[in-house]
Simulated assay, not measured.
Amino acid sequence: MRTWSRKNSLGGVKIRSEMDAREASVLRSLVSSVLSLLQDRAASAPQDDLAELTGLRTGNSTAPTDATLARLLPDFLKPDAAGGEEATPGANVNGALRSLHEPEIIDAKLAAGSVILQTVPAEGGKVVLTPEQADAWLAGLNDVRLALGSTLQIDADTPDELDPDDPRAPHLDVYHWLTWMQDSLVQVLVP
């Protein structure tokens, strides 16, 4: 992939890059996997009679048990460090907030990932984005990085390179590529 560039044209600002077929295939596969996880989570939301009457959508009130989904859809409030969440007066606050806001959060993540799938050429080639599409790419790339980082158990102590015998080594290269792609896009979007 080439670094992103910014071009002013008669039709407005365009953000451009180019991907080869392998890069496009990897990116499309990763984005599709994240979207599938999110769609499954949305489909698992309980049906609420009040929501059906009022038209307000509600989501799951419990945090995901899957580590990748938990990273994509974290709790709104952290538990009280001294005694755990049960010790706080608003022990059910996370569940209520999650139930109210998770559908919208998932919708936004699905929309961002869909923009990537719609704008990256399936066989590789030029990628041309509007600034709004570039913003969606940033959000979608971030979600893919969070999901991959969670799967690979990347944390602050993870070295930049792993032993070649480590099964995570090739995937860490993909994680670094996504990081570079996201950083390059941020650099172009910031005037």
Rank of each mutant, 00 (worst) to 15 (best):
A82N: 01
L69T: 10
P64C: 11
D66Q: 10
I105N: 00
P64K: 08
L110C: 07
T119R: 12
G84R: 04
A122G: 07
T119Y: 13
E102M: 06
R98W: 08
L110W: 09
G83T: 00
L77N: 04
L73W: 15
T65N: 09
E123A: 15
P64S: 11
D75N: 15
T119K: 08
L69D: 08
A91R: 15
D75V: 03
V120E: 06
P121A: 07
D66V: 13
I106S: 03
S99W: 13
I106V: 06
L77S: 01
D107P: 00
P64G: 10
P121S: 11
T88R: 13
I105S: 00
K109G: 01
A87E: 04
F76N: 01
A111V: 12
E123F: 12
G90Y: 15
A96N: 14
G113F: 07
K78G: 03
G113H: 11
A122V: 15
A111T: 12
T88E: 10
E85C: 06
T88A: 14
A63S: 14
N92L: 10
V120H: 05
T65A: 14
L69E: 07
L73S: 11
R71Y: 09
A67E: 15
D107E: 07
I106G: 01
A81V: 01
E86N: 09
T119D: 15
G95K: 04
A67V: 14
S99A: 09
A96L: 15
I106F: 02
A91H: 08
P121C: 13
L100D: 02
P121N: 08
E104I: 00
A91S: 06
L77V: 05
S99T: 09
E86Q: 08
L97D: 07
V115A: 07
P103N: 14
A87I: 03
A111L: 07
G90W: 13
L77G: 00
A63T: 13
I106D: 05
V115K: 05
L77K: 00
A122W: 05
L117A: 14
S114P: 09
P89A: 12
H101F: 13
P64D: 14
E102R: 04
P79G: 02
G113T: 13
L100I: 06
L72C: 07
L97V: 08
Q118P: 07
A70I: 08
N94L: 05
D80K: 01
V120M: 08
T68E: 11
K109R: 07
A70H: 13
P79A: 03
P121Q: 08
T65K: 14
A63Y: 10
I105W: 01
P121I: 11
A122I: 10
L73P: 10
A81E: 04
A82R: 03
G95W: 02
L100F: 04
A87V: 02
R71L: 14
S114F: 11
P103R: 04
Q118E: 11
E102I: 06
L72F: 08
P74C: 05
R71S: 14
K78R: 07
P64T: 09
G113P: 09
K109N: 01
E102S: 11
A111I: 06
P74V: 04
A67Y: 15
P79K: 05
E85K: 13
